[in-house]
Design a protein around this nucleic acid. Structure first.
Lengths: 216, 216, 216, 216
DNA sequence: AATGAATGAGGATTCATTCAT
DNA sequence: CATGAATGAATCCTCATTCAT
C-alpha cells in the first residue's frame, strides 16, 4: 500500500509555472522575443507545447510573467528600501541603489530582458507599454527621487534630475547589454567589475558639488 | 492612346540602389533585421519585390550594404581625420571625435543600426561578424588610439585604454539606442543635447590627469 | 453541436508517414522531383502543408524516404536471396533476378523513381549521390556478381561482367522508363510482357557459351 | 570612309538564331527543360535576355527549334536514305541505320534531348506531343519498316515489327541516356563502343532466323 | 534591332496556436 | 491535466515574360 503509491510531492503541478518561466527567461534572453519558439521553451521545461498553454495564455503573457518574476518584483523591493532609508546620505544611497540594481538584475540572466526590450519593443507595442509602465517608469522614478533629494539638500550640484538619472543609469544599462550576448565574440577584454569601478569613479568626482572654496 | 499614358514602370537604374538602401535603412531601423520584410522595403522604394533582387543578392547583402553606406564610410573618413590631426590635444581630439560620431551617425537614422545589431547579432552570426569587423573593431580602435596617445603624453590619467574606450563610448551608444525607437512612447523628456552636454562635462572633469600640485 | 460534428482534423500519427510516402511516390513519379510541390503531396495525403514537415525534415529527406521504402528495401532482400541461392545455375539465377526486379520494382509505380533520377540527378547532386550509393552500386553489384560467377564456372561466354551487367539491365531500365509516364500518349502498343519475353529470348540465345562442337 | 564603317559581316544578325540554338542545346541537355533559365541561354549566346525573345516566341518555341535543328533534320535525311537503299540486305540496313543513329545523334550533345524528353514530357504536354509526332513516330517507323521488310523476305525470324523495334532501339536509347549526364559520377567504366559492340553481337546472334536445317 | 530593368506568380519552409485524444 | 498532431498564415527567393529606352 505504501510502496506503490506515487509520492505525492513528485512533480507537483505548482512547480510547472516556475520551470516554464525559468526556461522562458533563458531562451528569451538568448534569442530575443520573436526568435524564441514556444516549443523550445516547453521542451526545455520538460513539458509539451500544449502544456505551456495551460499556464500562459500566449507568448505575450508568458513574456510578461517572466518580466514580473525577474524585474518587477525587484523594483518593488527597492521602492520599499528607499522609503525606509530616509536617513542616509544621497551619495551613499545612490551608490547603493546602482550597485544593488547591478547585483540583483544587471549581473543575472534577467539583464538580458533589457536588451530584448530595447531591441524589439518597436515591433510589439503591447509589450513595450507593459515594460515601460512596470519597469522603466518605476525604475527611473527611483533614481530620480534620490537625485532630486540630493540636489535639494545641497549635497549634489544643481542638475536636472531626469537627465542625470539617464546619465547615471546609462552605463549600467550598457553593461547589462554588454553582459548578455551583445554579440558572440565581443566584450573581449571587458571586465564588468573594472567597468563599474571606472564608472563609479567618474560619478564620484563628477557629480559632487564643488567643495566651497575655503576662505584664504 | 497618347503619350500621357502612365507607363507600368520606369527605368531608373542609377537611382534604384540609393532608393532601396534608404528604404531598407528606414525599415531595418524601425523593425529590426528579422522583422523587416523585403517586400516592404521594395514597396517603400516604389518597386516590386523582384526588383530588389536585381540590386542585392539577398537580405543579408542588402543589410551589409546599408551598414556600409551609413556607417563604415563614416568611420573610414574619421580614420583619415585622426591620422591627419596629429597636432591637436588629445582631450580636444577626443571631444571632437565623440561629437562627430554623434552628429554623423548617432543623431541620424543610422544609429538604429547599432540597436539592431545589439538586438539580433546573436541570431545572425554572419551579420554579427561583419559588423564586428567593419564597425566595432575599427570604431573602438579609433577612440582607443586617442586615449592611448593621451595617456602616453601625460595629458590623461594612466587609465586602461580599452576599458576607458568602452566607458567613453557607452553613453553615446546608449544615446543612440535611446534616440531610435527605444520604444515608441519612451524617451519622453530626454533631450539628446542635454545628455551629451552632461556627459561631456563628466568626461572633462573625470578623465583629465590631476594638475600637478604646485610646489609650495 | 452534437457528436456528429466533423472534427477539423484527425490524429493519425501512425498512418501518416505511409500515407505521405504513398502520396509523394505518386507525385514524384508523375512530375519529377523539382516539379512536385510539397503542398500537393500533403493535400493528396489529406493533410496540410505543415503536417508533412512533422514527418519529414524537407523535400530531400522525403524523397530519400520514398526511395528507401520502395527500392532500397527490395535490393536488400535480393542480396539475401542471392547469397542463399548458391546452388542454382547462373542462367537461371540471372533470369530470376531480372524478372524479380521487374515484378517488384519495374512494374510498380516505383519504377518512375528511376526515370526521375535519370532526369534530375544532374540538378540535385545530393540526391544523385544518395541514389548512386544506395541503389545503383548495390543493384549493379548484384547482377555483376552473378555474371562473374557464370563466367568463372564456364556457364557463360567470357564477357566483361560490368559491361554485360549494363547490357542486361539496360532493357529493363528502358522498360521501366517506358512504363511510367514516358509521356502521356506514348507506348501505344507496347506490352511490357511481350517486351520482356523478346528480351529474355535474346539473352537466352545470346549470352550462353556456344555449345562445344560435338566431335564428329 | 572605309575604316570607320563597321565591317558589314560582323555579327550578322543571321547568325544569332544559330548561336542561340547552340547555347540552348547545351543548357537544355545539361539541366533539363524546366531548370534551364533563358537568361543563361542568352548570356551563353552573348546576347541579352530580351534579344532571345526577338527570335523565339518563348521557351517552348526555343526548345522546339532546338529539336528541329538537331534531330528532326537527321531523321528526314535517314528517311530519304532508306527509300533509296532498297537493294541492301535488311540485316545490313538495320545495322547501318542503328549505327548512323548513334553516330549522328546518339554520340552528340543532341542525345541529351532524348533524356530530357523522357524526364519532363509529363510536365509539358505540348512538348511531348511535338516530340512524339516529329521524332518518336518517324524514328520508330523507320526501324519498323526495315524489320517488317526483313520478316517479309524471310531474312528475319517472324517477329512483331513494332515490339522488335523497341527492343532494338532500347539499348541505343539507353546508351544515349547514359552518355549524357546520367549522373555526375556514374558510367564509370562504361565505354560506349564496348557497349555497342556487345549489343550488336547479341542482335546478330539473336535476331537472325535459324539457318534452315540442312537436309541430311 | 537590342537591351536589361521591372514585374509578379509560385514554391519551400517556419512557428504560434488550436484541439482531438 | 497533459499531450503533441494538425493547421495555415507568413516570408524569402526565383525566373519567364514584358516593355521602356
Amino acid at each position: 500500500m505504501q510502496s506503490d503509491t506515487k509520492p505525492r510531492w513528485e512533480r507537483r503541478k505548482d512547480a510547472r509555472p516556475q520551470e516554464l518561466l525559468a526556461a522562458a527567461l533563458d531562451l528569451f534572453v538568448d534569442r530575443g522575443y520573436a526568435a524564441t519558439r514556444l516549443e523550445d521553451v516547453a521542451r526545455r521545461a520538460g513539458v509539451s507545447k500544449g502544456t505551456l498553454y495551460l499556464y500562459f495564455e500566449n507568448k505575450e503573457e508568458l513574456f510578461k510573467a517572466v518580466v514580473r518574476e525577474n524585474i518587477v518584483d525587484v523594483i518593488g523591493k527597492a521602492e520599499s528600501d528607499i522609503a525606509a532609508a530616509s536617513g542616509a546620505s544621497c551619495s551613499e544611497l545612490l551608490r547603493t541603489m546602482l550597485h544593488k540594481w547591478w547585483s540583483e538584475v544587471g549581473s543575472t540572466r534577467a539583464s538580458g530582458l533589457a536588451k530584448l526590450i530595447m531591441a524589439e519593443a518597436g515591433n510589439f507595442p503591447e509589450i513595450a507599454a507593459f515594460y515601460n509602465d512596470e519597469v522603466i517608469e518605476r525604475g527611473n522614478g527611483l533614481i530620480a527621487s534620490i537625485v532630486r533629494r540630493g540636489v535639494e539638500s545641497g549635497e549634489f550640484a544643481p542638475v536636472d534630475a531626469d537627465v542625470m538619472t539617464r546619465v547615471l543609469t546609462a552605463p549600467v544599462l550598457m553593461l547589462m547589454l554588454w553582459s548578455h550576448s551583445f554579440f558572440p565574440c565581443d566584450t573581449g577584454g571587458m571586465d564588468p567589475e573594472a567597468y563599474m569601478a571606472a564608472f563609479l569613479g567618474l560619478v564620484e568626482r563628477g557629480i559632487r558639488a564643488p567643495a566651497p572654496v575655503a576662505p584664504t
